[in-house]
Amino acid sequence: MAFDSFTAFLAMGGYAPYVWPAYGATLLLLFAVVLHLRLERRRLWRELRRRVRRERRQARDGEVPS
């Protein structure tokens, strides 16, 4: 360990106002990218599923003689 205590770790040798925002912004970006990726995938799949279901229904209904 480079620090004697957890308080010392948080203080970053007096550089806390510089170190933590740099790390915070980086981690925020990584999490935002992953979150966006998951939301995008979920939205796409939902939309595609709906479209396939609708088409199947149309195909089935079309076969029924009227």
């Binding site: 360990m1 480079a2 770790f9 970053m12 040798g13 007096g14 170190v19 790390y23």
Partner: peptide, 17 residues
């Protein structure tokens, strides 16, 4: 990098950036 790497002799802990 944050907790175990040694601090820089000139820049102190700001070097962890």
């Amino acid at each position: 990098g944050l907790a175990f790497a040694p601090a820089d002799y000139q820049q102190g802990d700001s070097f962890r950036i």
